[in-house]
Amino acid sequence: MDRPRVTLREMTEDEYRSYVDEVQGAVVRELVATMSEDEARATAAGGIAQYLPQGAATPRHILVIAEDAAGEPVGNAWVGPDPHRAEGSDAAWLYDINVYPHARRNGYGSAILAEVEALVARDGMTRLGLNVVATNLAAIALYRKSGYAVSTMQMSKVLG
């Protein structure tokens, strides 16, 4: 199957507000496996506040909607500077990428990822890093298929 083509455009303010609500909910659902729900909610809210202090207008962060050939939204992504590298680094960080439920299993994840890579490369970035939750097997498969390799690994164990 050929990868579908997508076009990226910046999120509107309304899309940004909806996106933040969705991201925080998803982060909480992922984190409750390793921490309390209250801690997960605080962590999710803190991450957005830390990395997007000016919302969608935060400098060097790009929040985009991916549209298919007909102009219909099929997903979104958030990319910005790599938080693990010094200011001015040539490394970008993929904070989040999503394919909307109605568009899944049609190659849009690969298409969105490829367009994000092209976007940051045009901005002079030579590396794109990301985190992926170990239980998100679909995302892990997407990243491996797209040439990503494990560079660090965190592990934890619930005690008691």
Rank of each mutant, 00 (worst) to 15 (best):
M1W: 02
D2F: 04
R3E: 06
R5T: 13
R5V: 02
V6W: 01
L8Y: 04
R9P: 04
R9K: 06
E10L: 12
M11Y: 02
E15N: 03
R17S: 07
Y19T: 01
Y19C: 11
V20H: 05
V20C: 11
D21S: 14
D21I: 12
E22I: 02
G25D: 01
V27L: 14
V27D: 05
V28M: 05
V28D: 06
A33G: 15
S36G: 10
S36P: 01
S36D: 05
E37R: 11
E37F: 05
D38R: 00
E39W: 10
E39G: 06
A40W: 00
A40D: 05
A40Q: 00
A40T: 01
A40L: 06
A40P: 12
R41V: 07
T43E: 08
A44I: 03
A44N: 08
A45I: 08
G47H: 09
G47A: 00
I48H: 06
A49S: 13
Y51C: 08
L52F: 14
P53W: 12
P53D: 10
Q54S: 14
Q54G: 13
A56C: 07
T58E: 10
P59D: 15
R60V: 14
H61V: 13
I62G: 14
I62M: 10
L63D: 00
V64Q: 12
A66Q: 12
E67L: 14
D68N: 15
A69C: 11
G71E: 06
G71I: 03
V74K: 10
V74Q: 09
V74N: 10
V74H: 11
G75I: 00
G75E: 02
A77L: 08
W78L: 14
W78D: 04
W78C: 15
V79T: 01
G80Y: 08
G80N: 02
P81A: 02
D82E: 06
A86K: 10
A86L: 15
G88M: 09
G88N: 02
A91K: 01
L94H: 06
L94A: 05
D96F: 05
D96C: 07
I97E: 07
N98W: 00
N98P: 03
V99D: 05
Y100C: 10
P101L: 07
H102C: 01
H102D: 09
H102P: 02
A103W: 11
R104K: 08
N106Q: 15
G107Y: 14
G107F: 12
Y108C: 08
Y108S: 06
G109I: 06
G109N: 04
A111W: 11
A111L: 14
I112R: 15
L113W: 12
V116T: 11
E117V: 09
E117K: 15
E117F: 03
E117C: 08
A118R: 13
L119N: 09
R122E: 15
M125V: 05
R127Q: 12
G129H: 14
L130I: 08
V132H: 09
L137R: 06
A138D: 14
A138E: 10
A141W: 04
L142P: 13
Y143A: 00
Y143N: 01
R144T: 04
R144S: 00
S146H: 00
Y148S: 02
Y148W: 13
Y148D: 04
A149M: 08
V150K: 03
T152E: 08
M153V: 12
Q154G: 12
M155P: 07
S156M: 05
S156A: 15
S156W: 13
S156T: 12
K157R: 13
K157A: 07
V158N: 03
V158T: 09
V158S: 10
L159D: 02
